[in-house]
Simulated scan of single mutants.
Amino acid sequence: MSERLTIGELASRTGVATSALRYWEEFGLLPAPARVAGQRRYPPSAVGLVGVVLALRDIGFTLREIKAFIASRSPAGDDWRELYQRKLTELDQRIAHAQTARAVIAHGLDCRHEDILECPRFAGGVAALLAGSSLEEAHEEAHSH
């Protein structure tokens, strides 16, 4: 039988707090480990699994999405690709939104008005948002005049 890791050893090897590891186990991201005298004993492969969780979290997956990703991995399945495609679409939308937000801020900094609230373009953008426009639409509308 290969060496088993205590939760403290797993935490030390991965940089993840023991409380987070317990939560991930409870949430279903990590399989319930064997117990020796009541203590959790993880297989060495748990280090890699924690690494997968960290990598997916860092690229924007929620814990719920990571759980679905882990569950979707089967020798015959391609379900993980659908999860990746959805996340890619979401990230593209977030990037587009962030680029618009950056443009709005840059235009605000370039505004000739002492107080941004006195700027007609800013007021037009706010009015467009209140009318139900997206930030992108409101920004475009405010700068099309």
Score class of each variant (00 low, 15 high):
5 L>N: 03
6 T>F: 01
9 E>V: 02
9 E>H: 05
10 L>V: 07
10 L>G: 01
10 L>N: 00
11 A>R: 03
12 S>R: 15
12 S>C: 12
13 R>G: 00
13 R>S: 04
18 T>C: 09
20 A>I: 08
21 L>C: 00
21 L>Q: 04
22 R>F: 01
23 Y>P: 05
25 E>C: 08
27 F>M: 12
29 L>K: 01
30 L>E: 00
32 A>P: 09
33 P>T: 05
34 A>T: 13
34 A>Q: 15
35 R>S: 12
36 V>I: 14
36 V>R: 13
37 A>R: 10
41 R>G: 02
41 R>Q: 15
42 Y>W: 03
44 P>I: 07
46 A>I: 04
48 G>P: 01
50 V>S: 02
53 V>N: 07
58 D>E: 15
58 D>F: 09
60 G>L: 03
60 G>Q: 02
62 T>H: 04
65 E>N: 07
68 A>F: 03
69 F>T: 04
69 F>L: 06
70 I>M: 08
71 A>N: 10
72 S>Y: 07
73 R>N: 13
76 A>C: 13
79 D>I: 05
91 L>G: 08
92 D>R: 15
93 Q>Y: 05
93 Q>C: 05
93 Q>R: 10
93 Q>S: 09
98 A>W: 03
100 T>N: 02
101 A>S: 14
102 R>A: 11
104 V>N: 01
105 I>C: 13
108 G>M: 13
108 G>Q: 11
109 L>C: 12
112 R>A: 14
114 E>F: 11
117 L>K: 12
119 C>M: 05
121 R>A: 10
122 F>V: 08
123 A>T: 13
124 G>Y: 06
126 V>K: 14
127 A>F: 01
128 A>Y: 04
132 G>N: 06
133 S>W: 04
134 S>C: 09
134 S>G: 11
134 S>K: 10
135 L>F: 04
136 E>G: 06
139 H>F: 15
140 E>Q: 15
144 S>D: 11
144 S>C: 10
145 H>R: 14
